[in-house]
Simulated scan of single mutants.
Amino acid sequence: MAYSAAAPLRPSWMSQQSARLLAIIIVAPLASMATAVITQGPHVFSYLQSVEMLTGHILMVVLALVFGLVMAMLAMRGERKERERADQLQVALEKNRLERELLDARLRLLQAQIEPHFLFNTLANVEALVASGSPNAGLVLRQLIAYLRAAMPQLNDADATLGTELQRVRAYLELMHMRMPDRLQFTVPELPALADLRFPAMALLTLVENAVRHGIDPSMAGGRIEVGGQSVAGKVMLWVADTGVGIAETAQPGTGLSNLRVRLQAFYGSGTRLDLHEQAPHGVRVELHFTPMDTK
């Protein structure tokens, strides 16, 4: 009780540790005397007149002081370790918060680079369609406007999911199919089991755009784009496969693919992989391997 009461009752000029030790030094003899009074009652003075009893009482006071001070120092040592552990935890939490803020800023920077890249490439496709005098140019432009109106407000959504990303991919491929209906076929499944998975906006769309631009567009015969995904033992694999011209005739990866690697590793961790495989007889398959974060 003295140990606990010393800290809040101590004078401002005295340290907490000194106040606690002084309280035990003062209270130990008083507690021993109180024990003698309680046990002996009105015979306490005759009890202490005995040399043997007085010696025992003094010994009890010494033991109370020794054990009291030892236990107090052990308790203060434990409190000091707990404070140090709490301070270390606070520093770790602050470091983690700063790292998360830095990661968010980095993701926003990379995404800001990808968004114009996607928009300008799409507008270039529409420009080529208009320049060719296609009667579908007006319809395609209206579809592009509708797509951008639906997609652009969600591009900076920190809580974007794979389900919304698949919707964007489907809308983009429908737009590209209108531009080249005889040369592009595609499959984009719903993937209901992975729909609520947190997923960086435009990550999958970047792969689909590369498949159109570097795989289907250069091919006179066109081809097919297949988007898919699966989850096995807590690991997720997504893929975009095309039957276009293949890796040998494909241009070197540009800003979109380079930034995508960095974004995915920043979003899911260093274990994330982006693999490119050549398909037979021709085409490219790009696979994303990662461990998902918490679902929305």
Rank of each mutant, 00 (worst) to 15 (best):
L69G: 00
S258C: 00
L144T: 10
S18Y: 05
T206A: 15
L162W: 02
F118H: 13
V236K: 02
L238M: 06
V262I: 13
F186H: 05
P192W: 07
V188Q: 04
I58V: 13
V66A: 11
F120S: 07
P281S: 07
L194K: 09
H289C: 08
A5S: 00
L162T: 03
I247G: 06
L119A: 11
D104C: 10
G41E: 07
M178F: 02
D87E: 15
M33Q: 12
P8I: 10
S32R: 05
V130F: 03
L103T: 15
A195V: 00
R106D: 07
S270L: 06
H282E: 15
R170W: 00
A105P: 01
R80K: 05
A28W: 05
V236G: 11
L9F: 04
H43W: 10
L264C: 09
A31G: 11
L123D: 09
R168H: 11
R80I: 00
T39G: 03
G133W: 06
N96M: 11
A2N: 03
R149M: 14
G68I: 05
A150S: 13
A112F: 08
R179L: 07
E84V: 08
H177I: 04
G133Q: 05
T55N: 12
M178A: 14
R83D: 04
A201L: 10
R263Y: 02
A86W: 04
D159L: 12
Y3D: 13
H117F: 15
Y172R: 05
A248C: 10
Y47P: 07
A146I: 05
L276D: 12
G163P: 04
Q167M: 09
V240H: 03
G229H: 05
